[in-house]
């Protein structure tokens, strides 16, 4: 578990990120993917992925919150005193989470009920905090927004994959369209329940490790090796 937010690979290079929007984007999407490589924010990755639709909404929430909070923290980075930066960051993040929660309640009430407390829990989702701490505090606004969006999208992508796998095997559907007909496929209930989530994510991380290890062991260090 060497990859804590503060020491993520993308930002050790510091100034390199500047003006290189594309590499920032790529790092968030694949090389330093928040879930599969940095293993951050997996609580919600597990909890809301019983169906693909829930996973997509949660992903959208994360993209919105990381993007917006990175922008504002980056704008305020010179005004925030170092000692109270944590509180300031949490306050900014919580504001956007509340905003998204209220929007969800107003326009998509059923989903808000389904997601339950997990929307609120984005506040303590380490990805948002990690990006704020590791990137937005040192970089100008535009790159920070790209970084926030990229990490949000990397997160949303993994969420969607897990959601699709679990919905397909658990209900035989994808976005409520029947894919595996019940005439020959017996839906595997365990995929919808908690154990399925853990096992799918575990296998997914193993797959990422295998692919990255195959690419060349020199630069791709396995996630959480101890």
């Amino acid at each position: 578990m060497s990859n804590l937010p503060v020491a993520c690979g993308a930002c050790q290079a510091g100034g390199v990120c500047q003006g290189k929007g594309l590499s920032t984007l790529k790092s968030g999407l694949w090389a330093n993917n928040p879930i599969s490589v940095q293993v951050l924010g997996i609580c919600s990755a597990l909890a809301v992925t019983g169906k693909l639709e829930n996973a997509l909404v949660m992903g959208a929430a994360l993209i919105f919150v990381t993007g917006c909070s990175n922008l504002f923290i980056s704008l305020l980075r010179k005004a925030i005193p170092r000692k109270i930066r944590m509180i300031a960051e949490v306050a900014i993040i919580a504001t956007f989470v509340i905003l998204f929660d209220q929007l969800l309640r107003a326009f998509y009430y059923d989903m808000s009920k389904t997601l339950g407390p997990y929307v609120g829990l984005i506040i303590t989702n380490c990805i948002v905090m990690g990006r704020a701490e590791a990137f937005a505090l040192q970089n100008p606004p535009i790159v920070s927004v790209v970084d926030g969006l990229a990490n949000g999208m990397g997160y949303a992508g993994v969420l969607a994959v897990i959601g699709a796998i679990r919905e397909l095997l658990g209900y035989g559907t994808i976005l409520d369209f029947t894919v595996l007909s019940t005439s020959w496929y017996v839906p595997n209930q365990v995929m919808i329940l908690a154990p399925g989530a853990f096992v799918v994510l575990g296998l997914l991380i193993a797959m990422f490790n295998a692919i990255n290890a195959g690419k060349g062991a020199a630069d791709a260090k396995p996630a959480g090796g101890h």
């Binding site: 575990g202 991380i205 193993a206 490790n209 290890a213 396995p222 959480g224 101890h226």
Partner: peptide, 8 residues
Amino acid sequence: KAFQGVSI
């Protein structure tokens, strides 16, 4: 190897 760490 691939399963070491978080995966397992």
